[in-house]
C-alpha cells in the first residue's frame, strides 16, 4: 500500500509538471502588437530597432537617433487615419534610414527610398549603348550581351544579377573574346540580384584566391550585437580566365549584388573601376511583416570591403567618369570612350 502511495505521488508530480509545461506553453506572438496605427508603428519601429544592421552606423552618418524617431512619427498618427495615410507615415519613418533594401510592400504601393540613385545623374543612356556599341550583331549568353568593338576591345553588358549566368556561358564568352586587347565590362544600371552570379563572374578575373571582404550578421536584438566577421574570398575559376586589362563601368544604379561585385572586382588584378560612385546597398535583406499584414524588407547582414570598411553608401571608382550629354547627342557614350582610351594605353 505504501508502494502504491509513492506511485500515486509520482503520477501527481508528473501531472503537475505537465500542467506547468502547459502553462508555459501558452506563449503567444513575439509581442502583443495591435492593428491600430500606433500598434503598427510600434511594431515597425521595434522590428528595425532589433533587426536592422546599420543603425549605429547610420545614426552616426545621417545624424539621427532611432529612439527619437518613434516619438517624431507617433505624433503624426491618429486613430482614425486611413491605410493610405498610415502607409505614408511609415514610409517617411523608414526613409530616415536612406536604404534601398528597406521597403514596405502593400497592395497600395511599394514604399521605398531610392535617393541613392534618384538624387544623382544617371550616367547611362541605354538606347545609345544599344544602338552605337552593341548594335544588332551582338551575342547573348544568358544575362550577358557582348561584342567586339572596332578597336579590338571586348564590350560586355550585364544589366542585372538576377539574370543567371552559367559557367558555360562565361567560358564561351571568354573564348570568343580571347583575342581582344582588353575588356569593358559595363554594369551601369545593374540593380543587383543573386550574389552567386556576382561571385561566379568575379572568379573569371583572378588566378589566385583573393580576399574581397567580410560579412557578418546580427546575433541579438542590441544595435551592436554582431557575429565575428566572416572573411569572403573569391577562388579562381578552374575554367578559362581573363588575363587582360578590364575596365568596369559603374554608376549610381549599381546596387546590392552589383555593389558587392564591384567590391570584389576592386581586389582583382588588372581591373580598373570607372564611372560614378556605386549606389551601395551592402546589407543582405531579410523579410518580416506588420500586424496590418504589410510585408517589410530590411538590411540584416552587413558586408564590408577587404579593409573592413562600410560600403553601404557605395564604392568610389578608381577613375571618375560621367556621361557627357553633348557627346551623347553626337552618338558617343563618353564613359565607354574613356574606357577605350584607358585600355588602348595599356
Amino acid at each position: 500500500m505504501q508502494w502504491f502511495s509513492s506511485v500515486k505521488g509520482g503520477v501527481k508530480a508528473f501531472l503537475l509538471i505537465f500542467f506547468l509545461v502547459l502553462m508555459g506553453a501558452c506563449q503567444s506572438g513575439e509581442s502583443e502588437y495591435d492593428t491600430s496605427p500606433q500598434g503598427n508603428l510600434d511594431a515597425l519601429w521595434t522590428l528595425i530597432d532589433e533587426h536592422y544592421c546599420f543603425l549605429t552606423y547610420k545614426e552616426k552618418e545621417l545624424g539621427f537617433k532611432w529612439a527619437d524617431i518613434h516619438s517624431k512619427y507617433s505624433a503624426k498618427l491618429n486613430p482614425e487615419m486611413t491605410r493610405v495615410q498610415l502607409f505614408e507615415v511609415l514610409c517617411q519613418m523608414l526613409s530616415e534610414l536612406k536604404d534601398g533594401h528597406v521597403n514596405i510592400s502593400t497592395s497600395l504601393d511599394l514604399g521605398r527610398n531610392w535617393t541613392w540613385k534618384e538624387d544623382y545623374p544617371e550616367n547611362l543612356d541605354t538606347e545609345l549603348r544599344q544602338q552605337q556599341y552593341l548594335g544588332t550583331d551582338y551575342h547573348i549568353g544568358s544575362g550577358l550581351k557582348y561584342t567586339i568593338l572596332p578597336d579590338n576591345i571586348a564590350y560586355v553588358v550585364y544589366e542585372s544579377f538576377t539574370d543567371a549566368i552559367g559557367d558555360g556561358n562565361l567560358s564561351d564568352m571568354l573564348s570568343y573574346l580571347q583575342l581582344c586587347n582588353g575588356m569593358i565590362l559595363d554594369i551601369r544600371g545593374n540593380g543587383g540580384g543573386e550574389l552567386t552570379n556576382a561571385e561566379r563572374l568575379s572568379q573569371r578575373f583572378t588566378n589566385e584566391k583573393v580576399l574581397v571582404g567580410y560579412l557578418c550578421h546580427k546575433t541579438g536584438t542590441g544595435h551592436d550585437d554582431f557575429s565575428e566577421p566572416m572573411a569572403e574570398y573569391v577562388e579562381p575559376s578552374s575554367s578559362i580566365r581573363w588575363q587582360k586589362p578590364v575596365v568596369l563601368l559603374v554608376n549610381r544604379s549599381c546596387y546590392s549584388a552589383a555593389n558587392i561585385f564591384v567590391r570584389n572586382m576592386k581586389e582583382m588584378p588588372r581591373v580598373t573601376v570607372m564611372g560614378d560612385q556605386t549606389g551601395g546597398g551592402s546589407g543582405m535583406p531579410f523579410s518580416s511583416e506588420l500586424p496590418i499584414g504589410w510585408s517589410i524588407r530590411f538590411s540584416a547582414s552587413p558586408s564590408f570591403d577587404a579593409r573592413m570598411q562600410q560600403i553601404e553608401f557605395g564604392i568610389e571608382p578608381d577613375v571618375p567618369s560621367s556621361l557627357d550629354t553633348a557627346l551623347a547627342a553626337e552618338g558617343k557614350d563618353s564613359m565607354i570612350e574613356d574606357a577605350r582610351r584607358l585600355l588602348s594605353g595599356f
Partner: peptide
C-alpha cells in the same frame, strides 16, 4: 543565429 543568412549558413 538571430539574423544569420542562408549564405552564411551555407558557407
Amino acid at each position: 543565429e538571430f539574423g544569420e543568412s542562408y549564405y552564411e549558413i551555407s558557407q
